[in-house]
Amino acid sequence: MTLAFLGMNWQTLADAVSLGAIYALMAVGIGLVFGVLRLVNFAYGQLVMAGAYALAFAYDHGWPVSVGILLCFAVVLTLSLLLDRIVFRPLRAHSPAVMLVATFAIAFLLQSIALLWFGPLGKISASLAALNQPVTISGVDIRKIAIVATALAAACLLALVLLLGRTRVGLHMRAAAMDFRTAELLGVRAGRVITAAVLVSGVLAAIVAVMLTVQTPLVTPDFALRDTILVLAGVVLGGMNRLVPATLGGFAIGFASGLLGGALPTNWSQYLPSFLFAAVILVLLVRPGGLFTREGQRAAERV
């Protein structure tokens, strides 16, 4: 009916939802670090890329899936902590522009290391390829990964809500995100909060790596780069200063890009990035504080 008229089917819709869910996880990963460090981590996609290479490496050597996933987590978390020590902390006091370009440089660096190490052709990671099989739900075929990704993302977000809302470290993280210096004065340990945020964000990156490699088994040096750019746009779109709006923004841009990518005819869908970014620019002009923030929540414009 309406769906068919738009050239869509249920598979497209499910894919769009699952892409939105994955992007929402990435948005949280970026938003958490931004909250405590005020640093836009452009290199987030390269964490995902490193995790994907770990999965491909395990697949190459014929290791079982569980070992591959463990390796992926180990690699991503180690890299996150390293980046935190070497890059993020020394940069904390600097201007947002310098921080953004520095993480840009790190992204560039990690990408070229991957290029040097693994070559431009890419590696295959197909250990979870079975998840691409469709499952029939009341006469509609939907790929399993769409369901798994959506469920997993929902579970992660729920766990995160509990972590932030119910635990001491979550409380500290929220306090730090609200006002870092005041939180520090009130006895929140800065180092511990930053480490916690970076670790949680790393765990999310590893999960995203696992799910993205199912959808795109070919792992290349620019793996997840486009996704990161879109998620960043989504995060700013939703409202960078708050976690929930940022997550919604990530979901929205993933959903929109999945939906339009599946629904538009080819000669239009090649202009998809233009439509998405035009929408992002429009939102930024109309609501600079973010799409999903309430009036009072918006960061006061600095004069």
Partner: peptide
């Protein structure tokens, strides 16, 4: 009219488009 991160992302959007 934009500044800060908004300007960064919007100009990035211009590059993409």
């Amino acid at each position: 009219r934009l500044s800060g991160l908004g300007a960064g992302i919007a100009t990035f959007g211009v590059l993409e488009i």
